[in-house]
Every structure is written in structure tokens, then in C-alpha cells.
């Protein structure tokens, strides 16, 4: 049986982000891409599940960057059985979540997995998160913000994190879609030597796909929030400062 993990590369926010002249996209030349950190957790959780159940993990991704191979090879090196890349002419297009989901649905149906795992969110989703979107299109049950999973006769048990440490325990009939917030353990390390060996020995299956109408909202303008490089200093007596701080926390809903 199969568990599909959907992996996406996203711009690395460690680098300073800047905008393209038109103002509707990032200056992509200056962007470097990394695997969405939540997707890394989804992969880890899938591998942990599969180690217990004997399922095959299949890593699937849309190659919007031209650099997805690296991510897929790493997934194979970590223990995924297959890696499938959806390739197409995505140059200069921003593939929204809905469009991504529509591209993914046919391959997921073809693989007919019992579980689809993906990261709870990605820093570049403007039009919502992938897991619930896929669930709606596939008509499968779903849960996001998942921090623990377990397979149990025909169902998956998922722990969904709410707030203040409160968790919701759900049991979903299979097949199901989960948006993973954190795997049970830190995503494993795979030595570079192992990845390089996989790159020589394994293959990534490539499927050509056509960009679909995405139904995502039109971005008129991107902008960078005003710089707040330096701390704003609060002064006055301790009492004044305490008042200001409490006011600040209240305004942000933190009290």
C-alpha cells in the first residue's frame, strides 16, 4: 500500500526577499529555494508510518523551480520508494495552491494511496493550504495541524493541535489527507554521501503536465512591510513602562 507525500520548494526566507519590478512577484533571480519545512516533517511522518506498516512512501512534487530533483533525491535517500516529478512550463508563473492541487489530483488518483501527507502550510500560499484543498477535490476526509499519526485497521488516527496545548484526536477512514505540522521526531538526517549515491542509482519519474486555470485571486501588488530593524525603546519609570507593555500586549491579543 502507498502513502503519498507532497513536497514543495519555497523561497528561503533566510535570504532577504526583494520584489520584481512589476511588483506582483518576488525577484526570483535573487531567490534561493528550500524544501518547505513542514513538508520535511510530512515526509518524516510518512516514513515513520511506513516503517511500522510496510507501506511504500511515494514523494510527489511539482517542479516549479527547476530544482526539485534535489529534494526528491533526498527523499529517496531518506527512504521513499518512488519519486515523481510533475514538470511543465511553469517559468514565471506562480502556481497557487488551488492550481497545485488540481495538478496533483490525477497523479494521486492514479497512485491510489491510502494516505496523502503534506505540510500544514507553505510560506507562499496565498490561497489557502494544500491539505484541505486536496481533500475537497478528492472528496476524502482531512485534518491539518497534525502532530502525530497512527494507522489502525482501515483508519488513521491523527492528533491535531489546537491552542494552549489542547489537542483534538481524530480518527479518519482511509483514504485521507493530512496536513502535518510536526512529525513525531525531528526529520532525520541523511548524509550527503547517501544522497549522491542515490543520485547515481535511482531515477525520478517525470510526468509532463499542463498548467491549469487556477481560480486563485489576482494579486494587484506585493509590498514589503515597513522596516523595523531597530527596537523601539520604551522609556519612563518602571510603572510607565509596565503600562505601555500591557497596552502593547492587549492590542495584540496577547493578554
Amino acid at each position: 500500500m502507498t502513502i503519498v507525500v507532497v513536497l514543495e520548494q519555497v523561497p528561503d526566507v533566510v535570504e532577504e526577499l526583494s520584489l520584481a519590478p512589476l511588483g506582483t512577484d518576488l525577484a526570483r533571480d535573487a531567490v534561493s529555494y528550500v524544501l518547505n519545512e513542514y513538508d520535511d516533517h510530512a515526509l518524516e511522518e510518512a516514513l515513520l508510518l511506513a516503517e511500522g506498516s510496510g507501506d511504500d512512501v511515494v514523494a510527489v512534487g511539482i517542479d516549479t523551480t527547476g530544482e526539485l530533483d534535489q529534494v526528491l533525491y533526498t527523499a529517496l535517500a531518506k527512504g521513499a520508494k518512488r519519486a515523481i516529478k510533475l514538470a511543465g512550463d511553469f517559468e514565471g508563473t506562480w502556481v497557487g495552491t488551488r492550481a497545485a492541487a488540481r495538478l496533483l489530483v490525477p497523479i494521486i488518483r492514479e497512485l491510489s494511496p491510502r494516505l496523502v501527507l503534506t505540510g500544514v502550510q507553505a510560506p507562499d500560499d496565498l490561497d489557502g493550504q494544500l491539505a484541505p484543498t486536496l481533500a475537497a477535490l478528492l472528496d476524502w476526509p482531512h485534518a491539518s495541524v497534525v502532530i502525530g499519526t497512527e494507522l489502525a485497521d482501515g483508519a488513521v488516527r491523527a492528533r491535531k493541535e489546537l491552542w494552549g496545548g489542547l489537542t483534538m484526536h481524530l480518527e479518519l477512514a482511509l483514504p485521507a489527507v493530512l496536513g502535518i505540522q510536526a512529525a513525531r521526531q525531528t526529520p532525520r538526517y541523511v548524509p550527503v554521501g547517501r544522497v549522491r549515491q542515490v543520485m547515481r542509482e535511482a531515477t525520478i519519474e517525470t510526468r509532463e503536465v499542463e498548467m491549469v486555470a487556477d481560480g486563485s485571486p489576482r494579486v494587484e501588488r506585493l509590498r514589503l512591510p515597513e522596516e523595523t530593524a531597530q527596537a523601539e525603546f520604551l522609556s519612563g519609570s518602571p510603572a510607565d513602562i509596565a503600562d505601555r507593555l500591557i497596552e502593547l500586549l492587549r492590542a495584540r491579543g496577547l493578554l
Binding site: Q129, A131, A135
Partner: peptide, 12 residues
């Protein structure tokens, strides 16, 4: 955590 599972599903 609750709304996230509803908004994207409903929109799609």
C-alpha cells in the same frame, strides 16, 4: 487551527 481546515476546503 480550526478555521484553516474549513476555509480552504469550502473554497475549493
Amino acid at each position: 487551527a480550526i478555521g484553516m481546515d474549513v476555509a480552504a476546503w469550502v473554497a475549493a
